[in-house]
Write a protein that binds this DNA or RNA. Structure first.
Lengths: 363, 363
DNA sequence: ATGAAAGCGCTAACAA
DNA sequence: TTGTTAGCGCTTTCAT
C-alpha cells in the first residue's frame, strides 16, 4: 500500500519554472531557429554564440539580440553536430574491469573529476574483468570518436591494444600495463610495495609466507611477485614455490586458495594477499577454520580501505594511491590530447605505503 | 631507475595485427570510401551495412562485395553522424553523487551492465553530492542528446528536475526522489528497513537510541526517520528529539556527531547509523573514546558491505539491494525508451534486509 | 536493384 | 559587419 501512493501524478507539472517561451524549450533550439527569428544568418549566430563576435566585428546590437534570444530559448549547441564537424567530441572513454571494486571506483572518481575540469565528459565501460568485453568496449568507444582513452586493462591480453597504438589516439593505461606497448602508463610501484611488505614479514620472523596471487601475467601481479621474491633473495632465504598460489584478484580465489593452503600446509605462518578482495576471501576462510589473526597466522593485504582499521584484527596493508593514480592518468591523457605529436611520457610509478596495524605477529 | 626502463619505445609497432590495407584502418573508414572503392553509391553501402539488403533487393554480388570490403576496412559507423541523423544516440546518462561510494558504485555497475545488454553506452557524471554540479551535469547530458537518464539525485533540491519532466526524456530516479515529480523511481523501502532495525533494538531492551541522520529532507533520510519514529510509536515509547542528530551521509558527520553525542549524553545505549559512511565515522569515534561494541554501546548501520562480518564486532546492518536497484532502474528506463508515450510506472520500493550479527547487546 | 539528393546542426573558408 | 557555401558521415525519401 505504501508502494502505490508514493508518486502522485500531476496532470500539468508546475509552470513557474519554464521560461516564457516554454514551448520552445521542449524540443531543442538550433542555430537556425535563432537565425530565422532574428533574420540573420546562422553563421552570425554561430559566431556570437561561440564568442567570436569580436573577431568578426559583429555589431553590438546583433550580438546582444542573438545572445538574448539564445538565453531565452535556452539554447545549447548540439554536441553531436559539433563533434561531427570539429572531429572532436570532448569525451574520453574510461574502461574499468569492475566499477564496484573500490579500488577502481576510486580511480574512476578522480578521472571523472579531472575530465570535468577540462570540460570533458566520460563514457564509462565496465569490462567485467573480461578481455572480450574489453575489446568490445574499446571498439564501441572508437565508434563514438572519443578524444582519448583511460584504460585499466584486464591484463591477460594485449593484442587489441596494439591496434590502438596504430590509430594515434591519446591513451593512458592505469594499474596494469604491457611492457612492449609504447603507451603512457600510471600505476603503483608494486615491486617495491610487495618487497616492503615481505621484508616486514621476514623481519618479524616469518619464513613460510604464502603468496595469494592475482591474475598471473598481469603486470601488477608479476611485479608484486618479483617484490616478494626479491625480499627472500635479499634476506638470503629460500622461497617455497608451493606457497605461491591463486590466479585471480577476486574474493573467491582468496577464499579457496586459503582453504586449500591451510589443508596442505599447516606450517604457513603468514599470508601476503595481492588484493583487498583476496584478503576478504582469506579472512572468511580463516574465520571458518577458526584461525586467529595474528596469533595463529599473520596477514598483509594489498589495497588499504577504510574498514581495515576496524577489523577484528586491524589489518596491516600496502596502500595504493588510487586517487593519485586517477589524477596522474588524467594529466597524462590531457598532455597527449593537447600536444598530439608528442611521444608518450612512458610509465609513472607511484609509491605504495605500508600501513602497519596489528595483523602481523612477531615470532 | 626502475621508473625509466619500464616502457620501451619501439620505432615501428608490430605490423602483423593490421589488416592488409593497414593504412586505411588508421583514420576512420566511411561509407563513402567503401562506395568509391566499389563504384556504387553510398546509399547502397548504407543499406547493405544496416542489414537492409534484402528489403531493397540488392544483388547478392553487391552485397557480398560491400560487406567484405567493410570487414576488410574494419568499418564502423560513425555514431555521431548516426546520432545526428537518427536523433537517437544509444547513450544513457548516469548521474551519481559519488562513484567511489560502494553503494553507488554497485548501482552504477548494474546500470552499466544493463545498458550494454541493450546496446547502450553510458555517460557518467559524478556530481560530488553537489546540486550545482548535478544541474551542470544534467545540462551537459542533454547537450549530448542522451536517450535517457538514470539519476541518483543529491536530493536537496528538485527545481532542475522539474525542467526535465517537461522535455519528455525517459528518466528514472534511484535511491532519492521527490514525491511531487511524476518520474519513475526505484529505491529501498527505507521506512520498513529503519522500522525493523529500530524494533530490533527496542526488542533488545534499548530505549535511548541515537539516530545518526544523513541529508535532511532527502527521501531516504525522511523515510528512515519515519521508520525510526514509527517503531517508537508502535512500542508506545517516547522518543527523544535530542538523540536525532547529523545532516550528511558522510564519514565526517558520523564521527563528529558521535563525539558530540557521547559527550552530551552518557545514557545512550544504541546508535542507528543511516549510512555505511556514517557508521564508519561512528566506529572511529567510538574507538577513540574507548567504548566497546556492543558492551558499552550497540550499533546498527544502513548499507551492508563485505567487511561488516569481519569487524572487531561483526556489525548488524540493514542491507539495501543495490544490485537489484540498478537492475530495476535499467528496466524502468528501457520501458520508457521503448514506449515513449507511456506514463512513468511510479515508484518501486525494494525490501531491505536486516542482517543480524553481533553489534547489538541484549540489555 | 541502385542512385541522387536532401538534411540532421554545426563550423569555417571565402566573399562581399 | 554579415552572408553564402560546403561539408562532417549518415539515413532516407523519391526516382529510375
Amino acid at each position: 500500500m505504501q508502494k502505490n501512493k508514493r508518486l502522485r501524478r500531476k496532470k500539468s507539472p508546475p509552470i513557474s519554472v519554464i521560461p516564457a517561451n516554454g514551448e520552445l524549450s521542449r524540443s531543442h533550439t538550433t542555430l537556425k531557429r535563432i537565425a530565422n527569428q532574428l533574420d540573420v544568418s546562422v553563421s552570425t549566430v554561430s559566431r556570437v554564440l561561440s564568442g567570436q563576435a569580436r573577431r568578426h566585428r559583429i555589431s553590438p546590437q546583433t550580438e546582444a539580440a542573438v545572445s538574448n534570444l539564445a538565453r531565452q530559448f535556452n539554447f545549447v549547441p548540439n554536441q553531436l553536430a559539433r563533434g561531427l564537424r570539429l572531429k572532436k567530441t570532448l569525451t574520453i572513454g574510461l574502461v574499468i574491469p569492475d566499477i564496484s571494486n573500490p579500488f577502481f571506483a576510486g580511480i574512476a572518481h578522480q578521472v571523472a573529476l579531472g575530465a570535468r575540469q577540462h570540460g570533458y565528459s566520460i563514457l564509462l565501460c565496465d569490462s567485467q574483468e573480461d578481455v572480450e568485453l574489453e575489446i568490445q568496449s574499446l571498439g564501441l568507444l572508437r565508434h563514438r570518436h572519443v578524444d582519448g582513452l583511460v584504460i585499466c586493462p584486464v591484463g591477460t591480453s594485449a593484442k587489441h591494444l596494439v591496434d590502438l597504438v596504430q590509430v594515434h589516439l591519446p591513451i593512458v593505461l592505469v594499474d596494469r600495463y604491457f611492457p612492449d606497448l609504447p603507451l603512457s602508463y600510471v600505476g603503483a610501484d608494486n615491486l617495491a610495495g610487495a618487497a616492503e611488505a615481505t621484508n616486514y614479514l621476514i623481519a618479524n620472523g616469518h619464513r613460510r609466507i604464502a603468496c595469494l596471487q592475482g591474475i598471473r601475467g598481469s603486470s601488477p601481479n608479476e611485479f608484486r611477485l618479483r617484490g616478494y621474491r626479491e625480499a627472500f633473495a635479499k634476506n638470503q632465504l629460500p622461497e617455497d614455490p608451493a606457497l605461491i598460489v591463486g590466479d585471480s584478484f577476486g574474493e573467491q580465489s582468496g577464499y579457496i586458495e586459503t582453504k586449500l593452503l591451510l589443508r596442505a600446509r599447516k606450517d604457513v605462518t603468514a599470508i601476503l594477499a595481492f588484493s583487498n578482495l583476496i584478503a576478504l576471501g582469506a579472512l572468511r576462510a580463516l574465520a571458518e577454520e577458526k584461525l586467529r589473526i595474528p596469533d595463529d597466522i599473520s596477514i598483509i593485504a594489498f589495497d588499504d580501505q577504510p574498514y581495515a582499521a576496524h577489523l577484528a584484527t586491524p589489518m596491516t596493508t600496502v596502500a595504493q594511491p588510487f586517487s593519485e593514480m586517477g589524477e596522474v592518468a588524467v594529466k597524462l591523457l590531457f598532455d597527449q590530447i593537447q600536444s598530439p605529436q608528442q611521444e608518450p611520457k612512458g610509465g609513472i610509478l607511484l609509491p605504495t605505503r605500508l600501513i602497519v596495524r596489528r595483523s602481523v605477529k612477531k615470532l
